[in-house]
Design a protein around this nucleic acid. Sequence first.
RNA 1: GCGCAGAUGGCGGAGUGGUCAAUCGCAACAGACUGUAAAUCUGUCGCCCUAUGGGCUACGUAGGUUCAAAUCCUACUCUGCGCACCA
Length: 407
Amino acid sequence: MFWKRKITTVTDPARIDAFLDRGIENVYPNKEFVRAKMLRGERLSMFLGIDPTGPTLHLGHVIPIKKLQEFQQLGHQAILLIGDFTGMIGDPTDKSATRKKLTREQVLSNASLYKQQAAKFLDFTGPNKALIKYNNDWLGKMNFAEVLELASLMTVDQMLKRDMFQKRIEEGNPIYIHEFLYPLLQGYDSVAMNVDGEVGGNDQTFNMLAGRDLVKAINKKEKFVIASKLLVDSTGKKMGKTEGNMVSLNQTADQMFGSVLSWSDGLIIPGLEICTNISLDEIRVIENKMKEGMNPRDAKVLLAKEIVGMYHGKEAADKAEQNFIKTFKEGALPEDVQTVAVAKGEKLVDILVKEKLVESKSDFRRLIEGNAVSVIGGDVITSPDYSIDGPVKIKVGKRRFISIEVR
RNA sequence: GCGCAGAUGGCGGAGUGGUCAAUCGCAACAGACUGUAAAUCUGUCGCCCUAUGGGCUACGUAGGUUCAAAUCCUACUCUGCGCACCA
């Protein structure tokens, strides 16, 4: 009854190779190192660290999460690490300015939301359940002497190798000590959990390798690091929260569908490879078809449906497509539009400001002047004093809608 | 510690007494166009109003000079740089 059930790992070379190849940018020390371990049937542990900086996960997080999922499905120990301690400092990666520090409350509330969202991929129950850990459990308890000891393992020059820091120095921007310490803290996670490996986005390589160095020094073992590809467009621009066109997991099916369709065409193939489960062979076929003149929009629709389907189900994905066509091709009202009930005679301006469809009355006025506000199925509204005398559906710009009813 | 330089709108960055709600670029938003929410072109881009005009708030913070300050003065805060110090 109480003996540990032995969990067997998958040693199928094809699946192992797929795990190590698809959507992967780099493996340290090298692919063969990990491959050999897996082929031998060794049961490994690997974690993905996420700093809970916002309430939602986005597609960029999902790429490594999917890798972790694959890892779990191969019978290994997956660990999701919530950086509730590091999240309060802020990773200087990719930020030209110091990130705003988050409060403990914010971090904790974000963290609990993350677990729910990650549960779409990771199995947190059952015999081979994924573990969830919080780095405040060890980082929050370190005393200064321990920090110093840790800091003695790395040199300033090593830290300065980061492009990020170089850039800031060149631009004359400050680097604070706590930011400098960040890779060290994140690296210590690997030591504390004594894991075999870590997965993360390619932008995390530096931090993950810092962990590798620390594990080598303290735990005397070789931690492997798997860096997944980033979702970047042809110009090398990263998709992210700051870029504004990132799909976040709390979006409705319709919003998500629209976000994907707004991606540039260059992202279609990389997106298929790293964000979906469509087989690589099929992706090749699509790629070739596009070269032969297939409308890239159709490929993008396929990608969008696939992505939406992963979170909202296939049915919702089909519906989102229909909705999109109706709304943007035919100018109709989307289905899940917000509705408000107002008193007869109320001014449209006040309603839109109150419902936050426009920023201010001045904003509304400008939109009116630009012919951006219209009654759906009717005319463009040209009077800023337009008031409500019956139920109407209003469109502001291309994608702001509201259905107004009279109380 | 001493000295020098700087702090401007979401970001970058002009402006150094009135014509500044502040050139310009990016981002954003809208219109046209488009297979698309891409690209391109055009416009808008602090708030409010009884609106080709008027008011209010804003150029690190707090005071001051002046009819008038983002612009001058003083103090403070923060940042960068140089010098000094360096167990």
